[in-house]
């Protein structure tokens, strides 16, 4: 549909390439495992879970990825340091995919960053995320770690509109000394993945799509999001789910297409159980997006769904 004037950077995370102009690389897809409420988790504090089902889920995502050509990452969510350690040990043993380390608790996230460095997995880890609450301690931990890939979250809780989020990325808020992109660079991040931040429907859910375009135009960095969080927190849809769960699932999965059509390079698609559905949907979008950009002399990667599925 379009191409950017600015050169588009491509992140390379343990062999998984993310970024570029629309149509160039297949959209990278990250499924979440051990998320809040995930029924395979037996003890969220200790990080105990059903290993057999978890292995099946990881293998299912891998199989979908192999089929369509969309690279996959594993989005590991954990509440505590201990839980994250267990999850990282398990995921890194089962799959060679890069993985995101995510926790709402910054101490657990930092401990996980130190842990992956200790066990030699820093190059496969993506820190999720460098955000507006980052302090000196977290900056130091990241700088001292071997992690060189991070999500940079543009959600600005003081001004969640387009300008506020772009400002957070570029120059920071009134209480910050610099913008998040500069902070990420200072922390040693070579692979910066911008996530504009998804807010609920009715609270500016679409802003992230405009920021995707603007951030790529301005910095040429890979951009994507967990866009499914918008429909999944939509009360009207949650009510529909009680009567027909398929309606909810369709909206949840289809939202990825919006991110792709707005030039997104990666999608954090939510529950990893959705892998068999999201990969075909994303592949379909990638093919159509490539065909819309063909005249820009865009060459699709050999692994692109266009080269595999049509």
């Amino acid at each position: 549909m379009f191409r950017f004037q600015k050169e588009q950077k491509i992140a390379n995370i343990a062999g998984v390439k993310i970024g570029g102009n629309p149509g160039e690389l297949p959209t990278a897809l990250a499924g979440t495992i051990f998320y809040e409420g995930h029924d395979i988790v037996e003890d969220a504090n200790e990080g105990l879970f059903d290993r057999k089902i978890a292995e099946d889920l990881l293998n299912s995502q891998r199989a979908s990825s192999d089929e369509t050509g969309n690279p996959c990452l594993v989005h590991i969510f954990g509440d505590t340091e201990q839980a994250l350690r267990n999850y990282i040990d398990f995921v890194s043993e089962i799959t060679d995919s890069p993985f995101l380390i995510d926790s709402p608790d910054p101490l657990a996230r930092m401990a996980a960053a130190e842990y992956v460095s200790e066990i030699g997995l820093g190059d496969r880890a993506v820190y999720n995320s460098i955000n507006m609450t980052i302090g000196e301690k977290e900056r130091k931990v990241l700088k001292d770690s071997d992690i060189d890939s991070s999500i940079v979250l543009g959600f600005n809780a003081m001004d969640s509109g387009f300008k506020g989020r772009m400002q957070l990325l570029e120059s920071g808020t009134s209480s910050m000394d610099k913008g998040l992109i500069d902070i990420a660079l200072e922390c040693g991040m070579c692979n910066i993945l911008i996530d504009p931040g998804i807010t609920p429907m009715g609270n500016g859910s679409g802003v992230s799509l405009r920021i995707t375009l603007a951030a790529k135009a301005k910095w040429g960095l890979p951009v994507g999001s967990g866009i499914h969080n918008a429909p999944s927190s939509w009360e009207w849809l949650r009510d529909k789910k009680k009567h027909d769960p398929l309606v909810f699932k369709m909206c949840d999965i289809a939202s990825a297409v919006m991110q792709q059509a707005a030039a997104g390079n990666f999608v954090l698609y939510g529950p990893i159980e959705n892998a068999p559905y999201i990969f075909p949907v994303a592949a379909m979008s990638d093919i159509m997006i490539y065909e819309s950009a063909e005249e820009f002399e865009i060459e699709p990667a050999s692994s692109h769904p266009f080269n595999r599925l049509v």
Partner: peptide
């Protein structure tokens, strides 16, 4: 004009 849509149509991302 930071996004090219066609030879004569461009977009300003901001």
């Amino acid at each position: 004009a930071d996004i090219l849509i066609s030879e004569k149509v461009v977009m300003d991302a901001f």
